[in-house]
């Protein structure tokens, strides 16, 4: 899965000579934008500014009155506070690359650049979530089950055969590998509300159906 299908192509961007007031206005004007890539005249990425950067740069003390904040936001320039060392991804990056990058560097969006750092898009955590919502198929109505199964050959075949035999469409099947020793948790998202029979079938195959109240994936310790 490449990011170019999920990224925003019409990027709202800004130049470094603009004031924070202008940057803030730009973010507000275009809805819920939190990241503004900063480009030069040739559309080369030279920085990024976030709504958080702007908030941090302006006086926030309760005693400071609105005109003072306004004055500061009109005085400070984007170039004064922008992050210059931007975490970027190329348009040939994958969704997996983007997920790992955003986790590693704790950023909310990645400007997408071509080989010469020309800005061609932006992919935010919201875009990534949307991509995963599509993959998981959860926009369609369905029922999520959780099976605890032995980590052994042929298990997935048994699960998919059972779903097939019950004539149920599948939205997605998620497998959590490291559930507990020698076990896997399998989450079939089934596009039906009639899951009574399939549940019984799974149980007759010896699979443990987990109570939804007991579902929680282990946190990543890394």
């Amino acid at each position: 899965m490449f990011i170019n299908k999920s990224m925003t192509v019409n990027v709202i961007k800004i130049t470094e000579d603009k004031t924070l007031a202008q940057a803030k206005k730009k973010m507000t004007l275009h809805g819920e934008i939190r990241h503004l890539p900063v480009v030069d005249a040739a559309n080369t990425l030279i920085g990024i500014i976030t709504d958080r950067d702007i908030r941090s740069a302006l006086p926030s003390d309760r005693n400071v009155c609105a005109p003072e904040i306004k004055a500061a936001s009109e005085k400070l320039k984007v170039k004064d506070i922008m992050t210059k060392n931007v975490v970027v991804i190329t348009s040939e990056g994958t969704i997996q690359d983007a997920l790992l990058l955003t986790q590693k560097y704790k950023v909310g969006a990645l400007p997408v650049v071509d080989g010469k750092k020309g800005l061609v898009g932006i992919i935010s955590t919201r875009d990534l979530l949307r991509a995963f919502i599509n993959v998981l198929g959860i926009k369609e109505p369905g029922t999520l089950l959780c099976l605890i199964v032995e980590d052994e050959f042929g298990i997935m075949k048994k699960i998919t055969d059972a779903i097939y035999e019950e004539k149920i469409s599948t939205g997605s099947i998620l497998v959590a590998r490291y559930w507990e020793k020698n076990k896997r948790a399998v989450f079939p998202y089934l596009l039906t509300q009639q899951v009574t029979n399939i549940k019984k079938r799974f149980q007759s195959l010896g699979f443990q159906l987990l109570d939804p109240m007991d579902w929680s994936l282990e946190p990543d310790t890394k």
């Binding site: 899965m1 994958t94 969704i95 997996q96 690359d97 790992l100 990058l101 590693k104």
Partner: peptide, 14 residues
Amino acid sequence: EHPSFAYPGTGRDF
């Protein structure tokens, strides 16, 4: 080969 397409799924440029 890029880890999104090949075993073992590691070795990203970052």
